[in-house]
Design a protein around this nucleic acid. Structure first.
Length: 586
RNA sequence: GCCCCGAUAGCUCAGUGGAUAGAGCGACUGCCUCCUAAGCAGUAGGUCGCGCGUUCGAGUCGCGCUCGGGGCGCCA
């Protein structure tokens, strides 16, 4: 593995050196603020503020730095401009050198910048219930973050915090035990599992509401479950297993990394709950109030101004989700040695996590070395701008939503890709349809409410997943037609001048590493989407104006082949980090 | 009442304190004897919710508002 420094980083260092010579010692570390620019390849904005702090003329400092900077064969021109900006142009040979160096490394020259263990808690569906679009968001965003942090060197532990415990299981298990003969768990499709579960829920609910005797037995069943009664636990396990059939089919359709090994549900923490409560009480973090074990916060109050607690243990002695969340934090730090825990959860739980994290800090579990962060995402809305529901006001079945996306993609693929055989056509429809849903979810700022509009996602024009897949397929198509051997032996010719479209593409190709660092910094996958879209646009512009196979001469042809190759590899890497497929042809 | 999130083109959204705020969709005008037209080029479309402040410089930072969404004791 050979790390390749980005041109922006090389320029940054060269400017820092020159600034260090021109500025007083105290300001030697000033940031030159190197950015991409329309006025040159890069511009440096940091000299204005540095000069002011040093009591110098910004314009004079800029001219001095421009004159003394060591270009190292990378900087072709560095000119002072306006009140004190620097406009920087890089050499064509440096651009081609970057492309060549990245292509020579299986990580595209990107360094592993993360070092540690991170637990990512995502997806979190509830047993015996339908997954909804909120789970879809958590699953897709969490999956992308797991892939990206992992690529950057982090040891990622995926946790699917299944809602597999609670009082609602009483009536389900009781009903199962009383009417179990016509409810046999069997291998089957997710749809079948789901309808069995829905039927169980509906029938159990009906019995609970209409039959006081049943309701009573259901309540006793909750106690039996908590006490670990074997017959009751067996029923619980049956329900959990049935649900997992459904979840796994959804995960399989979506193409996410989650497996059964990642399922660490709420029930897993049950044995730890009493000791967590005891420890918090012993530490003085929690205290009994109105019979419940509570943690209070001076700045968290209710509508009438009274302080609102985080309830660790309810007044009836039972444990709520706060206890489970705290036990999970303690386990992930104490046993898994995580340095960071991420929760990909709906933004509406922001206050809950604030209280949980603060409690964990008071207990000493979280500190300067160990962080927890709520990777919050907004509510999913329908095309009408209201929370996403069917016309009848019911939650939308996730499976049918995904199937519909694939169905629409299939129609387009059938229309546009007549060269594909039936098998590849179906595979492509899956990759395109699922990719459209995932890209749409990942492409906008996660904190905002998000409009789930299947028409838009699967329109398959413009800024959608398929645009990136299409650009990737075009790179592969060119390389195929060039002949894989010719593509393999092509090398850069640094002496050949580059066209504007070639330069723009090469500059964009150099930015993947910085983009991934940005994503990892703020846990914002949409930055990677934005980058890949820009890269695909740069490639398409190159495709339009720079013929590869019919290039005017052999060196130009090879330079372009190499650009195609790196573009393809970069798009493929980026798509995979988002969890999208990168088919070789569309 | 307090807290959180949001407000940028008709719609959906990007936008590291930098120079003239960008995409996509939709609308309009063009482009396939040529490596994939799922594409490209162009035109039209903006008081960046409002005000004050900080700064050489604010869509971006701070404060105060307006509007929308959400949250606030024993559900998760």
């Amino acid at each position: 593995m050979t790390t390749v420094a980005a041109l922006a980083a090389t320029i940054d260092r060269a400017l820092r050196d020159a600034m260090g010579r021109a500025l007083p010692a105290g300001l030697a570390g000033a940031d030159p603020q190197v950015r991409r620019s329309a006025r040159g390849d890069f511009q440096a904005n940091g000299l204005l503020s540095a000069a002011r702090q040093a009591g110098m003329s910004p314009r004079e400092l800029a001219e001095k730095v421009a004159a003394s900077v060591d270009g190292q064969g990378v900087i072709a021109a560095c000119e002072a401009s306006g009140p004190g900006f620097l406009n920087i142009t890089v050499t064509d040979s440096a651009l081609l050198g970057q492309v060549s160096a990245r292509l020579g490394d299986d990580r595209l020259g990107i360094p592993a910048s993360e070092h540690g263990i991170t637990v990512i808690d995502y997806s979190q569906p509830n047993i015996a219930k339908e997954m909804h679009v909120g789970h879809l968001r958590s699953t897709i965003i969490g999956d992308a973050l797991a892939r990206i942090l992992g690529f950057l060197g982090e040891e990622v532990i995926r946790h699917n915090h299944l809602g597999d415990w609670g009082t609602q299981f009483g009536m389900l298990i009781e009903y199962l035990i009383e009417h179990g003969e016509d409810w046999q768990h069997e291998a089957g499709s997710a749809e079948e599992s789901l309808s069995r579960l829905n039927r169980l829920y509906r029938d159990a609910r009906a019995a609970f509401d209409s039959d006081p005797g049943f309701a009573d037995r259901a309540r006793r069943r909750v106690v039996a479950l908590q006490a670990g009664d074997p017959r009751t636990l067996a029923g619980w396990r049956e329900i959990v297993a049935e649900s997992k059939v459904y979840f796994n089919e959804v995960y399989d359709k979506l193409g996410v990394l989650l497996t059964d090994e990642d399922a660490v549900g709420e029930s897993f923490y049950n044995p730890f709950l009493p000791e967590v409560a005891d420890e918090l009480e012993r530490l003085g973090v929690a205290q009994v109030d109105q019979g419940a074990l509570c943690v209070f916060f001076d700045d968290i109050t209710g509508p009438t101004g009274e302080r609102i607690p985080l309830i660790i243990r309810k007044s009836d002695g039972g444990f709520g989700y706060a206890a489970t969340d705290l036990a999970a934090i303690r386990y992930r730090i104490g046993t898994l040695h995580a340095r960071r825990i991420l929760y990909v959860v709906d933004i509406r739980q922001a206050l809950h996590f604030r209280m949980v994290f603060e409690t964990a800090r008071r207990a000493g579990w979280l500190n300067d070395q160990v962080h927890a962060y709520h990777v919050a995402f907004g509510t999913v809305l329908g095309p009408d701008g209201r929370p996403f529901k069917t016309r009848a006001g019911e939650t939308v079945r996730l499976i049918s939503l995904l199937d519909e996306a694939v169905e629409r993609a299939r129609a387009v693929v059938r229309e546009k890709s007549r060269h594909l055989d039936a098998g590849s056509l179906e595979a492509t429809a899956q990759q395109v349809g699922i990719g459209a849903v995932k890209y749409a979810d990942l492409a906008s700022n996660r904190a905002k409410d998000y409009v789930f509009d299947l028409d838009r996602m699967v329109s398959l024009t413009g800024n959608t997943g398929v645009y990136l897949q299409y650009a990737h397929a075009r790179t592969r198509s060119i390389l195929r037609k060039a002949g894989d051997e010719a593509a393999a032996v092509a090398r850069v010719h640094p002496g050949v001048a580059l066209d504007p479209a070639e330069r723009a593409l090469a500059l964009k190709l150099d930015e993947l590493g910085a983009t991934l660092d940005d994503v990892a910094q703020a846990y914002e996958p949409h930055r990677l989407c934005g980058y890949l879209f820009e890269l695909a646009q740069a490639f398409t512009a190159f495709f339009e104006s720079c013929p590869v196979l019919r290039a005017p001469d052999q060196p130009t042809r090879e330079n372009r082949l190499v650009l195609c190759k790196l573009t393809g590899e970069t798009l493929k890497t980026g798509l995979e980090l988002l969890g999208l497929a990168a088919p070789d042809q569309l």
